[in-house]
Design a protein around this nucleic acid. Sequence first.
DNA 1: CGTATTTGACCTTG
DNA 2: CAAGGTCAAATACG
Length: 277
Amino acid sequence: MLMEEKLVVKELEQGKELANQLMNSLNNPSSSSKESNEVLISEILHCFENTIAMMMNLDKKALKRSHERSDQSNKKRRMLEKKKTEKVNICIGSGQEGTLLDDGHCWRKYGQKDIHGSKNPRGYYRCTHKFTRGCLAVKQVQKSDTNPLCYEVKYVESHTCDITQSATKHSLPVSEEAEQKLHDAKHSDDTVQHMKPEELMLSIEDLDYKKDIFRTFSFSNHEMDDDFLEWKDLMANLSPTTSESGITNEFHVSPTDDSCFSSLETLLGSTPDLSWM
DNA sequence: CGTATTTGACCTTG
DNA sequence: CAAGGTCAAATACG
């Protein structure tokens, strides 16, 4: 069984367990509150959301594989499928090493490679939510040969998980520090004004990428992956939207509403295993 | 014990 | 065939 399939089974088992809890709760109204039932319902819905997202990701992969097998002349396809990549050169001042910062996303290292003609190896990172949310964001980080304080960061695909994780724990490479500066600089003019020139020097090669970074940090993705939008629409349809049920009217979700998760988050409060929301 | 990183093997591409 | 990219088992870490 594939890793993703195991996660799907795990998620469904959790959903089953939660449904059982809800059933017990409904059978014993005296020992349960309306609020606890609402939390259970939300968690069950959350399991569905996760499972569907994972299945869509699996389906996408399977389709891709079958196409690759059947399509003999797929050169044009490959040209069209070429992944969106953005390159960023980041230089940091000497006094900043050792400070743990993040770029608002959780990255997980999945490989490192010595690059022909380069002194420093290249690190390969993918989004932590690759399997749980189907986020395809990937980045490559390589220390510059000429300037040890400079890093070449290549982003492949943008995040579809739409999550910022600045308050969570991180184990990031040094280069992440510079990236945080990059994002901070974009996010706040004050930051730029107060930053000494020797502390931060950024070189962005692509203007579109600047926009992308800002979009990520302002919590609004306006150019999201088609599949993700499709998934969101599906979620919106699955989630109760009427106020008649009484229980569920607190998490009304419209298909065009970017904050479809935040309403659930509000309802669920600090439920530990929903912290990613 | 669960999660993240390391690293050699394997796959893909030119 | 070489170089870059990814996978996954082993290992480290909190």
